[in-house]
Simulated assay, not measured.
Amino acid sequence: MAKRILITGAAGFLGSHLCDRFIKEDFRVIGMDNLITGDLKNIEHLFGNENFEFLHHDVTRFVHVPGNLDYILHFASPASPIDYLKIPIQTLKVGSVGTLHCLGLAKEKNARILIASTSEVYGDPLVHPQNEDYYGNVNSIGPRGVYDEAKRFMESITMAYHRFHGLETRIARIFNTYGPRMRLNDGRVIPAFIGQALRGEDLTVFGDGLQTRSFCFVDDQIEGIYRLLLSDYIKPVNIGNPDEITIRDFAEEIIKLTGTNQKIVYKELPQDDPLQRQPDITRAKEILGWEPKVPREQGMKITYEYFKSLSPEDLKKSEHKDFSKHIRR
Rank of each mutant, 00 (worst) to 15 (best):
K3L: 10
R4W: 00
I5A: 08
L6A: 01
L6R: 02
L6Y: 11
G9W: 10
A11K: 08
G12Y: 05
G15F: 08
S16E: 08
L18T: 05
D20M: 05
I23L: 15
E25K: 15
D26M: 09
F27C: 09
R28P: 00
V29R: 02
N34L: 01
I36D: 06
D39H: 11
D39C: 03
E44V: 09
E50Q: 12
H56G: 09
R61C: 14
H64M: 05
V65Q: 04
V65I: 12
V65S: 00
P66N: 14
G67R: 09
N68H: 15
L69S: 02
A76R: 00
S77P: 01
P81C: 11
I82K: 15
I82R: 15
L85M: 14
K93Y: 02
L105F: 10
N110F: 03
A111M: 08
R112Y: 14
I115S: 06
A116H: 07
T118L: 04
E120T: 14
V121L: 07
V121K: 03
G123S: 11
D124H: 07
V127K: 14
H128T: 14
N131S: 12
N131T: 11
N131K: 09
D133T: 12
Y134H: 10
Y135R: 15
G136A: 05
N137I: 01
N137T: 04
V138S: 02
V138W: 02
V138D: 00
V138F: 00
G142P: 04
G142V: 09
P143H: 05
P143V: 05
G145S: 03
D148S: 15
K151Q: 03
K151W: 15
R152L: 05
R152P: 01
E155N: 06
I157M: 02
A160M: 10
A160Q: 11
H162K: 10
F164L: 13
F164S: 08
F164K: 12
G166C: 05
L167H: 04
L167R: 02
E168H: 10
I174M: 03
N176Y: 10
N176A: 12
M182P: 03
R183K: 15
L184N: 08
L184E: 05
N185E: 13
D186F: 03
D186Y: 02
G187R: 01
V189W: 14
I190R: 04
P191A: 11
A192M: 15
F193C: 07
I194S: 05
G195D: 07
L198E: 06
E201Q: 13
D202A: 05
T204W: 14
T204Y: 13
L210C: 07
L210T: 15
T212C: 02
T212L: 01
R213P: 01
R213A: 03
V218Y: 02
D219R: 11
D220E: 07
I225F: 00
R227C: 01
L228I: 01
S231I: 01
D232N: 14
P242A: 06
D243A: 13
R248D: 11
E252A: 13
E253N: 12
K256C: 08
T260N: 12
Q262M: 10
Q262R: 10
E268Y: 02
E268M: 11
Q276S: 11
P279E: 08
D280P: 07
E286V: 07
I287S: 04
V294E: 02
P295W: 06
E297C: 06
S309A: 08
L310Y: 10
P312M: 10
E313K: 14
F323R: 07
F323I: 04
K325I: 12
